[in-house]
């Protein structure tokens, strides 16, 4: 499933970190709109790539890009070092 929410932790000095839940499904809606807008250009570029001998690269890229977004759910990164603290989780 495509992730809909992103959980982030913002570190605070001498306090427990604040947890922020960001609705990233809004981002997907925006991306979808951008994709619809650029789709004609993408299709033309893909046909040019086929004619130039690069095969189905253009079409495959679009498919694989969607697959990567689709499989992002469950990704969790939690890094705590002296210099940086990063926490995010895609739900």
């Amino acid at each position: 499933m495509i992730p809909c929410w992103m959980q982030m932790k913002i570190p605070k000095k001498n306090e427990t970190p604040a947890t922020l839940t960001i609705p990233i499904f809004i981002l997907w809606i925006l991306l979808f709109m951008v994709l619809v807008l650029i789709l004609p250009v993408w299709l033309i570029a893909s046909f040019i790539l086929i004619l130039a001998g690069y095969g189905w690269t253009g079409f495959l890229t679009l498919g694989l890009l969607c697959q990567v977004f689709w499989t992002l759910q469950g990704l969790e990164v939690d890094v705590k070092t002296k210099d940086i603290t990063v926490y995010f989780k895609l739900i």
Partner: peptide, 24 residues
Amino acid sequence: GDRVNVRIPMNLIRAGLKWISLIP
């Protein structure tokens, strides 16, 4: 010391590996 806890979905790795086929 440093602490790292990373969880990567296997499906994401599989999808990522498919990009190899797109290298000209």
